[in-house]
Design a protein around this nucleic acid. Structure first.
Lengths: 197, 197
DNA sequence: AAAATATATTGACTAACAGTCATTTTTGAT
DNA sequence: ATCAAAAATGACTGTTAGTCAATATATTTT
């Protein structure tokens, strides 16, 4: 039987690229630079990626997925009753991680376009996967089980996620519309408003 | 006296670039291609723009500003009393324009990153300019004059704008979270919730 | 365990491109 | 008409992306 592929070179390329992208930006990072850092040949790059931009998108997806997976994992260690509080717990967790990892935050916010973002969100959400514990199922189940009455829970959830991601980046990086610790209560307030008629 | 600079070549470069960007994407558009289309020399490009990406950002800002200016202009032709309805009027106007101009919408959504976006929003907003009729002043004045009581109107306004832009693009282009006409009532509902305690 | 086949990796090569700058053209003031 | 400042030019150079024939490694067959 064929040995399981270990993606060793592919992973080295991903991590070298992340290092260079965060250090000097995507525009100033050449593919030659990435393969040198990874100690592989130029041609190997093109076995795994179409170009620099596909690699960028894969990196953003990978790093974002990990953020949400960690948050979800942490949520399950705590017993939190209401769906409002569960959602806020996850958002709060991610804000704290990103605040401590500005390089990652800058990388995502500088390079993520809306086109790629919507695909990424769907993958994080895992809307169409039958994992009971996907972010999507957790929230939709929570909303339907609890005394939350919404005309369209799915749309509400979507709006909350979008509101959070588009405002928190600026709040952490540029203190707009307010420094993150000051902004948090307004944000959590808004989330509660959206979750109730 | 020196004749007013007419920016003729600069404008030709901007419009040629927009044409090529929307036709074949930024990655497949070369600077040589842009200057050929504009009938100017290569060097001229660098008199006006640092590189392809600065040109892209200027284009996005210009096109977005025009959208909001048109919307504001249209708003003033109507008498609309409440601030809720004014905000919804403007958003509705912009959604309608973008729905009819998918090329422009795709260009903005594919190429606008959060980093650039926050700067663009501030310029559209005109937060720090003393134009009575800037979007910012219109809303802040409206909110304070009417019976809208908000802990922090500025933050609320910011959240509304971010919520709208991040969700409408996907709704128009990909029917996510719902086709735009179906999504509109949920969005306007959310805006009203955010505007009231 | 040697040969045969399939798969992964290499890096020298080419065509395309970004960005520069010495030269030329245009403009507007005198 | 003369001149100086500003705008525009495009040939040139160094860099880079992406290709592909050649080579190395792994797997299967005999």
């Amino acid at each position: 039987m064929k040995r399981e592929k270990d993606h060793e070179k592919e992973n080295r390329l991903l991590e070298s690229a992340f290092k260079l992208f965060t250090e000097k930006g995507i525009k100033n990072t050449s593919i030659q630079g990435i393969v040198d850092e990874s100690k592989v040949a130029k041609g190997t790059f093109y076995l795994y990626f179409k170009d620099k931009y596909e690699l960028r998108d894969i990196l953003i997806e990978k790093k974002s997925k990990k953020l949400f997976a960690d948050a979800l994992n942490e949520l399950h260690k705590n017993y939190i009753q209401s769906i409002d509080d569960q959602i806020i717990f996850i958002i709060n967790y991610i804000i704290n991680i990103l605040s401590k990892n500005i390089l990652l935050l800058k990388f995502i916010s500088k390079n993520l376009s809306w086109g790629v973002y919507s695909k990424t969100v769907n993958k994080i959400y895992q809307k169409n996967e039958n994992d009971e514990n996907s972010l999507y199922n957790l929230f939709i189940k929570g909303i339907s089980e609890q005394n939350v009455k919404l005309k369209n829970p799915e749309v509400t959830l979507y709006m909350i996620l979008e509101l959070v991601s588009s405002t928190c980046f600026n709040s952490i990086l540029y203190d707009e519309p307010a420094p993150i610790e000051e902004y948090k209560p307004y944000l959590y307030d808004a989330i509660r408003k959206l979750l109730h008629e």
